[in-house]
Design a binder for these strands. Structure first.
Lengths: 200, 200
DNA sequence: CGACACATGTAAATGGTTACATGATTTT
DNA sequence: AAAATCATGTAACCATTTACATGTGTCG
């Protein structure tokens, strides 16, 4: 039973553009959807074999383009059917794991600085995402003869932009609170230390 | 080497409140941080053993409260130190996997309806999250004698609220576009069918 | 010719869930 | 007494990454 591995569909999606090798697939994935998806070789190569076994893709010519052996796969009719079938299926929910929020939730048990630094790092990361998205948008919108898929690509980009903006706004609301807490604790630090010392 | 399993720290965090059993931990986690974290028994019980082996928690009394055997764990000094150490450490980035966006990205290769339905389902889910957050906020803010951790809990709640709002706004921007696409395709459907038939 | 990118993979380990097994206690 | 819930766990399986192995072409 296939539980929640969508690598198959992701690969089929890109093979529907044109035949590609595992190496190419990884590069194309990194270049186009790395904002919300990633694949490693350890997944790609075995799954390509599986696609071939299941008749969803066909291994195309061990061509030696320039003398080098190359193993490209092309999508089959059944592969396109599977891609379409998956697109109509509901999204499988995945367990949530947000380490930043876990740290914030338990921030009381660490130094005040720790929480501030965690959120500052997160903020920097999200700001760089936002910048990156702006560049992508420029490039996509500058294309003269846009692909038919372009509106969909822009939607995924819009999603990223909105999330990054929401995250940045959260950071800007959270940081003053976290910093204030750090300062009041710093103010009390000497008295807390003496109390603790007195107990021994 | 511990790569990215934060179950240890999550459990230590809750054990720092009070001693608990594996069963209790799961319930407490589901009740407090399920918005951004989840743990299954298959993780909890083995990790509790591991915490004991490493001296971060101690198995407290196989007490028979009411005749029933119960296995509670309490955090040790070293456990608190580990919790604090982790809080000061940078968040480990995790690979992104957003199946909804993968579907939107490849929506061109499915029926127009498929994409609309996927986003509508996502919208309903996010709306219910938003409602849920509002309830939680009411409850947390109604408490007379707030815990010292409350500000941090509210921050994680705020994060969820902002993300849900951003997601809803994205859905509301995306749905008209997706629906429009569906209608123009429906308008062209007969001509496309005949073209396809003509090729055979 | 040495360094580096191209290219294809595999093995091992980690991370994590699901489904099951087992038995006591409470509720109906 | 039957059913539901409490409670503790384990085994199997799926998902996924990391690190390695291996060889080829290209560029300075």
């Amino acid at each position: 039973v296939a539980l929640s591995n969508r690598t198959k569909q992701a690969l089929l999606g890109f093979l529907s553009w044109r035949p590609m090798s595992g190496y190419e697939l990884r590069k194309v994935i990194a270049a186009s959807i790395s904002n919300f998806w990633s694949e490693s070789y350890g997944q790609i190569y075995p799954i390509l074999r599986q696609l071939e076994r299941e008749g969803l893709a066909a291994r195309s010519s061990r061509m030696t383009a320039g003398g080098r052996p190359r193993c490209t796969y092309r999508i089959t009719g059944r592969g396109r059917a599977e891609l379409s079938r998956w697109l109509a299926e509901p999204v499988e929910p995945r367990p949530k794991r947000n380490e930043l929020l876990l740290k914030v939730f338990f921030a009381m048990h660490g130094t005040p600085d720790a929480a501030v630094e965690a959120v500052e790092r997160f903020r920097a990361e999200q700001a760089s995402h936002a910048e990156h998205y702006a560049l992508i948008r420029q490039k996509l919108e500058a294309v003269k003869q846009p692909a038919a898929d372009l509106p969909y690509w822009l939607l995924t980009l819009d999603y990223g932009e909105r999330e990054a903006a929401a995250h940045l706004a959260w950071c800007d609301a959270a940081l003053p609170l976290l910093r204030a807490r750090g300062e009041t604790e710093a103010g009390n630090a000497s008295s807390r230390r003496s109390r603790r010392a007195a107990r021994r």
